[in-house]
Design a protein around this nucleic acid. Structure first.
Lengths: 201, 201
DNA sequence: GACCAAAGTCAATGATCGTTGACTTGGTTG
DNA sequence: CAACCAAGTCAACGATCATTGACTTTGGTC
């Protein structure tokens, strides 16, 4: 009986009638749920429960499910994502992350998973175009620099997303020889992509 | 008023109480709808309408939505998919397809889109593991051959899916310089993947 | 201490959708 | 022709879920 109270308290912390904090809690829960379940499978009641809040507040603060989704999407793709990447270690890092288990939800993976889920739902895919351009392909293009940066940015993002899907449905973890080959290959692909104009035919 | 009749006639052809044909029509419509809309956004009534059939027949012939999905998924991944690929032209072909518009729904793209949608829905993702292993990664691994074929098969499939997603949310079509760079790069990636053990670090 | 607006709660509504079982239609068999 | 059974139709149920608006609580202000 008191479990509910405890849970709510846990989720809401010691927040009391703080509109700003409540809004933030909903948005945070929405980011998680949408990334994990996708738009269509996410239930507003789940978001509300996770935020320790009544469902009706979602409407009060955001207007509706779709509006909440858009805001969560925008909030997920902040600014400093791409700029912090290090050219020297980038390829190895990405390969290592992708070779690992999907349950290791570090920030970058989480954000891209959100993107992936958004891109593959027919409901939300149309909303993505501009956002992806502005917050993802643009920064990546700048980060890459050099000739053909636009195409290379597309390819980089596409390839990453592809590996994300593969990891999503990967049954057993990669081990031993296979893992080695995987790491080597993936590293090579990303290393080539961040290098200018050496696309060997 | 007569439109409905005309539509139904068109979809159902001149089929009359033919259980086999009806089942087939439902399955065909399901393959299309599931690939286009994903599992969660697909409505049985749409499938039924497209097949020119009553919704209740879906239950009669398949048992339910999930069972229908599984059968459609299996039917979509036949056998002769991979074996027909030609090593000489593979990379160029794939790149050309990916550089084109998503509305050109040729068979291979369509099937992979089905796979993609299935993989990214939390409802259906768990069902995929075995099927992907048997009908996709297995054949691709054999087709590739050589050392590390397992990892390379994973990477090939992953990369392809990634480009599929990219194409799905691509706004304007690729043109001119960008298209050239895209083609060159993508061709290079796939060409490298089907070549044994030259993963340059 | 009364008042009021903001914050939060609650129950109900309406739409969608998968599922179900009783019903009708049509062709085939005896 | 009558009986029978498979094929197909129909209306309704029950569950889920976003949305809505009326209601209650809270904290600060005059």
């Amino acid at each position: 009986m008191n479990d509910t109270v405890a849970l709510v308290d846990l989720a809401a912390g010691s927040r009391k009638r703080d509109a700003e904090a409540t809004r933030g809690a909903i948005l945070e829960a929405a980011k998680t749920q949408f990334a994990l379940q996708g738009y269509d499978c996410t239930v507003l009641r789940d978001i509300a429960r996770e935020a320790g809040v009544d469902v009706a507040l979602v409407k009060r603060y955001f207007g509706g499910k779709e509006a909440l989704f858009l805001e969560a999407l925008k909030a997920s793709f902040g600014t400093d994502d791409v700029r912090g990447w290090d050219r020297a270690t980038f390829a190895h890092e990405v390969a290592a992350v992708l070779a690992g288990s999907p349950h290791i939800n570090e920030a970058r993976t989480h954000r891209f998973q959100f993107l992936l889920r958004a891109a593959t739902s027919p409901t939300t895919a149309p909303l993505l175009n501009m956002l992806v351009q502005d917050r993802l392909l643009g920064p990546i293009r700048e980060w890459l620099g050099g000739t053909g940066a636009g195409a290379r940015a597309r390819i980089l993002a596409a390839t990453y997303v592809g590996f994300l899907v593969e990891r999503l449905i990967r049954g057993a973890p990669l081990l031993g020889r296979e893992r080695e080959e995987y790491l080597t290959r993936v590293t090579a692909i990303f290393a080539a992509l961040i290098t200018e104009g050496d696309a060997a035919t």
